[in-house]
Design a protein around this nucleic acid. Sequence first.
DNA 1: ATCCTGGTAA
DNA 2: TTACCGGGAT
Length: 224
Amino acid sequence: MNGGPALPQIYERLLAHFGSQHWWPGDTPFEVMVGAVLTQNTAWTNVEKAILRLRERGLLDASAMLAAPIEILAESIRPAGYYNVKARRLHALCAFLAEQGALSDPYRLRTAADIPTLRQQLLAVHGIGEETADSILLYALDLPSFVVDAYTRRIFTRLGVFTGNESYAAIQARFRDQMPEDLACYNEYHALIVMLGKSICRPGPRCTLCPLRETCGHADRVSD
DNA sequence: ATCCTGGTAA
DNA sequence: TTACCGGGAT
């Protein structure tokens, strides 16, 4: 049916090699939502600079951010890139929180609706696509929605699990069906995928360093 | 010069 | 499907 090694087996190998990542610990749900937007096609180190600038200006709060002029918001997040686009996206996110009566407590979204409904509502917000919606559900709201990103596609296509042509929904469904539907597991798996993707399974892969090379057909086809 | 925990509008 | 948004790190 579907080729390549089983998804739980890959998870165990990555966890054994990299250890627990515990992503986004101790941050407020709103700060995690902001990070999910700012990190779109952007290195996380630059997101951290932008979040620090927002905090300095007292804008790391949904009410304050909603009230802030777009121009000020844009200047604040400049290090994250795409700052004019992302300023509008952050504002749209805050407007959505206001609509939901969650401005003072964004975590309230968690119990406002079931996961599929909440996901659809997030997708309707300007600037929130599938990956960002799932990142918010998983990392800000502690709801088990598997995050699929460019690393996921690249890694599992090289492993032979995917062809590379699958839709976002199809890839997400494979993880949902083959992995236990567990919050900590979804959280950890995506973090491990990012770790592997940026350190080893890069555009120019470093297969000799890869913890998955024994079960990956790609290692034989590249020279490093 | 390439890549980074994408999404929108055309 | 493609153009566009963009500063920062390597």
